[in-house]
Amino acid sequence: MTEVSFAKSFLAALDGRPIKLSPDHVEDPKTYQARGAYTLPKMPKTMSKRKGTSVTPGQERSLVVTVKSLRNPPLDLRLSSQTLNTSVHDIKASVAKETGIAENKIKVLHKKKPVPDSKVLKDLVSEDDTAVEFSVMVMGGAASAAATTGGKQDAQHDVAQGLSGADVLQTEDFWADLKGFLLQRIRDEQLAAELASTFQEAWKTKS
C-alpha cells in the first residue's frame, strides 16, 4: 500500500502546481510582431493549358463511330456525331436500322472482344480519342441478313433456306458461326478457335 499512497500524493502534488506553457505554445498578442503578406515565387516555366478537352458549355464531345463486319455480309458503316453517352445498344440499333439485319442477330465487338449492350462510348475510349471502331458479327452470316431484310418476319420464315441436316456441317459457314458463338460466350479468341477445331475434327472422325 506504500506505493499506492506515494503515487496518490505525487499526483496530488502535480495537480496543485500551476500550469506553465513554453513560449512555443503561448505568446502575448500585444508583443506579437505584424508580418507582411507572403508572395509565392514565379514559376520558371508557364504551365501549358490542356488541349482538346475543353468543351463549350452545353456542348458534349462527340465521336465518329465506324462499324465493320468480321465476315459476310460485308459491312462498312460510319456513324458521325455520337455522344460519349451513346450505348453499345444504340450502336447495334443503328446498324440494324441501316442494314435491315435483326438486332438480336448482331454481336458488337471492340478490339476483338464482345461488348455488353450496357456499355457507353466513354467507357471504351480515352480523353483524346475522336473516333472509335467496332466490328460486328452477324449470327447466321449472310443467310441471316438475307432473311431479315424487308422488315418484319413470320416465325415460319426464321429458318434459313438452303442446306439442312448433315449437309450444313460440310460448309465452312457453319464452323465459322460456331467459332463466333464460342467467342461470344468464352471471350477468348484462341480458346474459341481450339474448341471449334476440336468439334470439327470430332465430326469428321465420326462421319
Rank of each mutant, 00 (worst) to 15 (best):
S54C: 08
T46Y: 04
K68A: 04
Q59S: 06
P41M: 05
K112N: 12
Q161M: 11
K51D: 02
D123M: 08
E133N: 06
E127G: 01
D129N: 11
V120I: 14
S81A: 04
W203V: 15
T205P: 00
M43E: 14
K119C: 10
K152F: 04
I106P: 00
T149K: 14
E103K: 15
L21H: 13
G36H: 05
P18M: 06
A147E: 01
A131G: 05
D76V: 02
E194G: 03
E133S: 10
A146D: 10
L70E: 14
L191A: 06
A12Q: 14
W203A: 06
L183V: 09
L195V: 08
Y32D: 00
K97C: 03
P44K: 14
V159N: 02
Q200G: 00
D15V: 13
D128Y: 13
D173F: 07
D24P: 00
D129P: 01
K51E: 11
V64N: 04
F174C: 01
A12H: 12
G165K: 05
V120W: 01
L109V: 04
V136L: 09
S197H: 12
I19F: 13
Q190K: 14
Q156N: 12
L79D: 01
A145L: 02
V26D: 00
H110P: 02
G58V: 04
T2A: 12
K112Q: 11
E103T: 10
A96M: 05
S118M: 03
I19Y: 12
R50Q: 09
V138H: 02
A143N: 06
P73N: 06
S54N: 07
W203F: 15
S94K: 14
A12N: 12
T56Q: 11
E189L: 12
L84W: 10
I106N: 01
A192V: 03
D76L: 05
K97Y: 14
K20Y: 07
S62I: 10
L169K: 09
E201L: 15
M139C: 03
K179R: 13
